[in-house]
Amino acid sequence: MTILFRRTRALEAQIDQFLDAVSEGCLVFEKGVDDYLRHDEPSFEERRKAIGVFEGKADALRREVETRLYAESLIPDHRGDVLGLLENLDNVIDQAKQTLGQFEVERPEIPEELAPDYLALARACVQATQHLVDSCRAFFREITAVRSHIHKVYFFEKEADRLADGLKRKIFAMDLELARKIHLRYFCFHVETLSDRAEGVADRLAIYTIKRTI
């Protein structure tokens, strides 16, 4: 009995570590965008490396959890759902890492007056990811709380949509070259994608939650 539950608890801990990695990776993303907007190059580079570490850790943990779920034939009725959940959550941190990488490669020239809008957009997106991680934790441990977290994910996704829309309007109202406008819009779109990914996972989670009723 002790061995059975020791192994179960070890797997629970791995799932928690995976969720921690996703959550922290997304928080680092927000700090990275902030550093970029403040032109704090060393700190930005540090964040970019840190998010890579979190993403790698999340990948490794996800694979290990998936392997153990199958190898030990655990949660046969929810295994597919849990795997789908973990893989899609992994895509969220992947998106954050990629976006930060694009800032590093393409170096968009963001006008000072747009910096607060980009930061607000990044914050709303990261809020959506944090509530998503909370809803995933609830899915494993406190199923009744999933809904209240999911609705916050939806709220911040809509907020991100609103902010992105306002930002794009501002960009195209400015007296800039069309190529630069498109470049700026492109980064707005990249940051915004993070909340869209979070919303996609929340949609799946809502269905998985209904399925978890016995």
């Binding site: 059975l4 539950f5 179960t8 629970e12 949660i75 929810h78 494993f140 441990r141 009744t144 016995i214």
Partner: peptide
């Protein structure tokens, strides 16, 4: 009772 018991999905399985 189950939704209010706050037991991890894996522990419910075990």
């Amino acid at each position: 009772a189950m939704p209010h018991m706050r037991i991890h999905l894996l522990e419910v399985d075990a």
